[in-house]
Design a protein around this nucleic acid. Sequence first.
DNA 1: CGTTTTTGACCAGCGC
DNA 2: GCGCTGGTCAAAAACG
Length: 209
Amino acid sequence: MNKALDVQFRDEEILLSDYNGDGDDEFAKYSSRKQQEELESKRAEMGEMREENKRLIPTNTSTVLSSMEEDVDDLVSLRLGMRSPPPSLPIENNKRSGDDNIHQNIPISQDSQQIQVKKARVTVRARCDAPMMDDGGQWRKYGQKISKGNPCPRAYYRCTITSACPVRKHVQKCVDDLSILITTYEGTHNHPLPMLAATTTRHTTTNIL
DNA sequence: CGTTTTTGACCAGCGC
DNA sequence: GCGCTGGTCAAAAACG
Ligand SMILES: [Zn+2]
């Protein structure tokens, strides 16, 4: 149908590299969410743009292509659009009321594999001219550096929705296509994210579905 | 007046 | 040990 979007989707893969999982559940959830979000955006591009979506993407058309990258190992293989729900892992959705669900049940060194699932890292490649796309979150820039192999500087942001949110993100222009922004989210929020959820044809319920 | 951005300083890790 | 690089801090400026 609408091939439209003159945007050339390079590839739509979700890039998700996860490192230690301090609560992989959360991480997974987060990722899913993020992906979903991205999907929404993408869909928006597709033409299903809804007001809410518009809200997310104000003035720039951003094509979101996510890519998946398993750095360490495939501890978690999340796939956009086709998530495989853990068989016996109901995940209570975000019952983060306590917010510290803490991973007390960490699978003890799974088979001596590297247990480095602690920090979630989600990289999203989006096409947009604006210096930064609005993902619906609140971020405070805390630094900027010019990397060596890149003409463009990299900006560092930190989540300010709550005072103690460990989530950081940094955006950088792609070297190949200056029109593409690479946004990398790192960490997991410890508070409910506003936004998202609306539109949803699906119930707001947290999904996981 | 509170918040965010800007920007150089500062620091830790790494390679030599 | 030294210098380079990437990442963060923090003071001042810029905004609303
Ligand atoms: Zn947050």
